[in-house]
């Protein structure tokens, strides 16, 4: 059985205890709400897109260490990226979580950076939903632009 260290890497616990980019944004920022019916986690993602780039991002809501740290790391990773780059990162991240996508295979050269730490979640299948919650919610928010 995989150990707890595989799941709760130091950087994950750091993001859980000190979440980045908490809060909310007003219009013209877009937002979406997501929740994980299994464990009751709830999240809201706000994104401000200016000139095709993520100028700002904020996360609110509450949940377990995996959903919260994944959201925090995501917020840090997407700030400043173009919407295209963000979409590529989302698909790369979902691929790392072993989620099958329709359409072309994700570009595996997209750098994950700190997000690699979430790799261990795959060994705990029930937690995959927690890890992708913020990402799915981000995708929904971006579809509102």
């Amino acid at each position: 059985m995989p150990g707890l260290e595989d799941l709760y890497r130091e950087i994950i616990l750091d993001h859980y205890k000190n979440p980045r980019n908490r809060g909310h944004l007003d219009a013209p920022a877009v937002s979406a709400k997501g929740h994980n019916p299994l464990c009751g986690d709830e999240i809201e993602v706000f994104v401000l897109v200016e000139d095709g780039r993520v100028a700002d991002v904020r996360i609110s809501g509450q949940g377990c260490s995996i959903s919260q740290s994944s959201a925090s790391m995501m917020s840090a990773a997407i700030k400043g990226k173009t919407v295209e780059e963000v979409r590529a990162l989302v698909s790369r991240f979902r691929h790392m979580m072993s989620i099958e996508e329709e359409g072309p295979a994700p570009d595996t050269t997209v750098a994950l950076g700190d997000l690699e730490a979430l790799q261990g979640v795959v060994k705990f299948p029930v937690r995959i939903k927690c890890a992708v919650l913020a990402w799915n919610t981000l995708t929904e928010a971006l579809s509102n632009t």
Binding site: M1, G63, S65, I66, R127, C130
Partner: peptide, 18 residues
């Protein structure tokens, strides 16, 4: 978070619902 509690408990084969 309850989900994290149950994850650690599972490491001891303690089955609880979160």
């Amino acid at each position: 978070h309850p989900h994290d509690v149950s994850q650690v408990l599972d490491q001891h084969n303690v089955c609880v619902r979160a």
